[in-house]
Design a protein around this nucleic acid. Structure first.
Length: 511
RNA sequence: GGCGGUGUAGCUCAGUCGGUUAGAGCAUGCGGCUCAUAUCCGCAGUGUCCGGGGUUCAAGUCCCUGCACCGCCA
């Protein structure tokens, strides 16, 4: 089984923000999860570098456009490296191989008769070098230059998108979880109730030359969305090689809700017109709403991902993203909420459970994994709950229900904390005749922690690795597919545990 | 203006097909433990389920309507 996970290619007119980081972390967690299942995964992200707004941003920055896009694209890449994003390919739309693919698709659609030449009229501001919609104007004037726009007509190329409206509607109806969650599927269907307009896919070069030339008319460059969406094909080496046929059937796009229309309507109809199969899933998420509360004094703007990870840690931020937001819905972002998650879930629940369990193993058993005796009811319950947690996790995670998947892990963590109280190992340690009982309890704790580490690996790769090291897990119990790891009792008695610093230090109240 | 979404504890939210006394986490209060990162465990709560009307033996849930906020489209 193969799977191809993509983020949007990010538009380089601005630096990465929280929303970009969320999409990318979700994609990464999914990619890591599927790799852990033993599937072949291709994971792609990158940057979108053509179009008017990029040109404007470069001008404002006082840089030649190529230098500008190199710089911002580099910042995105560094940001992802700083979030442990395990992308396989990083695509840039200014790369020669991408330009070739776009021209190839354009030529193909042109030859099939789905691209035609026609008039395009609108209100144009010469100062901005762009068209405006009525509603974008302020008292009928360009909001930047405060001049009256000129009504002009120009000839352009159009993609005959309307031809595929019925096909698209039928396809969505026949494939209920093609666009998910359902609310976004409904939104696209609602949009398709109205007649679909054809899509203008060119810009005259005299007005904008920062784009990919149309292969059939050198006086025009390609509209930026038509160019950008095709990156998903470029990344698989389309049309040559074996990667495209191998990975495309398992393609899953991840996007935020603001770009639902290009991905839910333009893209599938473009694929259809080019004679290609649709992707497998379009996964759509909501927005982080910035709460009104004051941001930390230490930062001008904490929503910058690199500042967040520097302050709170990579895994802490990744965990917060996946735990706090219900995929598809909006969620609130605040530093207070992030800190609360870190202290309550990571430091107090998981971190402390890990510390007290290993602490007892060192204090009572010299840091060696003891051999368990015959399990009693309480021990059997621990093993049973571990199985439940794993089954739920494997069900929820690929369905993008990260919040539920993690909630289940934390129920197990809480259960282990209660198990410790119920068994009171410190009492067992005082009674020599209870030595076997203490061994059994310690073993169940450590084995439970091994399961937790295995499941959390896609979400918090660095912390999970630390857990595995402190648990003394070798390759045979770590770098293996999940189904191989999730068998109760695989932790080997006699294994030497390792001491380490606190996994998730508690954040003290701000001074 | 059209279409859609949301409104549940102090805060953030879950609530399946209409079915017992509406739940979780955080925050708060009290008690317990000492292995642990002042952590953990137990107990205690607090509700006009946005307002109004309707259907039903039964409504947070379904229907109508009003209000507030949000999104998409024009």
């Amino acid at each position: 089984m193969t799977i191809y996970i993509t983020t949007p290619i990010y538009y380089v007119n601005a630096e990465p923000h929280l929303g970009h980081a969320y999409t990318t972390v979700v994609a990464d967690a999914l990619a890591r999860f599927h790799r852990l299942l033993g599937e072949e995964v291709r994971f792609q992200t990158g940057t979108d570098e053509h179009g008017e707004k990029v040109l404007e941003a470069a001008r404002e920055a006082g840089l030649p456009v190529k230098d500008f896009v190199d710089r911002i694209s580099g910042i995105f890449r560094q940001t992802w490296d700083g979030l442990d994003i395990s992308y396989d390919t990083y695509i840039r739309t200014t790369a020669p191989e991408h330009i070739k693919v776009v021209q190839e698709i354009l030529a193909r659609v042109y030859e099939s008769g789905d691209i035609y030449f026609g008039d395009y009229g609108g209100l144009y501001c010469f100062g901005c070098e762009r068209f405006y919609l009525e509603r974008e104007l302020v008292e009928g004037r360009c909001p930047d230059h405060l001049v009256l726009p000129t009504a002009i007509k120009e000839e352009n190329y159009f993609f005959r998108m309307s031809r595929y409206q019925d096909w698209l509607k039928d396809y969505i109806k026949a494939h209920p979880d093609w666009i998910r969650p359902e609310r976004y599927r409904n939104e696209v269907l609602a949009f398709l109730k109205e007649p679909l307009e054809d899509l203008c896919i060119s810009r005259p070069k005299r007005r904008l030359d920062w784009g990919i030339p149309l292969p059939f008319d050198g006086n025009y460059v390609t509209y930026v969305w038509f160019d950008a969406l095709i990156n998903y094909l470029t990344g698989l080496g389309y049309p040559k090689g074996s990667d495209f046929p191998k990975y495309w059937p398992g393609a899953q796009h991840l996007i935020a809700k603001d770009i639902l229309k290009p991905h839910g309507i333009y893209w599938p109809t473009m694929l259809k017109a080019a004679g290609l199969e649709p992707f497998q899933h379009l996964n759509v998420h909501g927005y982080w709403q910035m709460s009104q509360g004051k941001m930390s004094k230490s930062l001008g703007n904490v929503v910058e991902p690199r500042s967040l990870t520097a302050l709170y840690g990579i895994d802490q931020v990744r965990f917060f993203f996946l735990r706090e937001m219900v995929f598809g819905l909006d969620a609130n972002f605040s530093e207070a909420a992030l800190k609360a998650r870190i202290n309550a879930d990571l430091a107090n629940d998981l971190g402390n459970l890990f510390a007290r369990s290993l602490g007892m193993a060192f204090k009572y058993r010299q840091g060696l994994v003891p051999a368990p005796g015959t399990p009693q009811a309480l021990d059997q319950e621990v093993a049973g709950r571990a199985q439940e947690m794993a089954a739920d996790f494997l069900h929820y995670f690929p369905a993008l229900e990260f919040s539920k998947a993690l909630h289940g892990v934390w129920e197990f963590i809480n259960h282990l904390n209660r198990y410790i109280v119920a068994c009171a190992p410190w009492e067992l340690a005082k009674a020599p005749q209870e030595a076997g009982r203490l061994d059994t309890v310690l073993y169940h704790l450590l084995e439970g922690l091994r399961w937790i580490a295995a499941l959390l690996r896609p979400v918090m790769p660095g912390s999970a690795l630390k857990m595995s090291e402190q648990l003394g897990l070798g390759l045979a119990l770590w770098d293996q597919p999940l189904p191989h790891l999730l068998k109760w009792g695989r932790l080997t008695p006699g294994t030497q545990l390792q001491k380490g610093p606190a996994l998730f230090p508690r954040l003290e109240a701000e001074g």
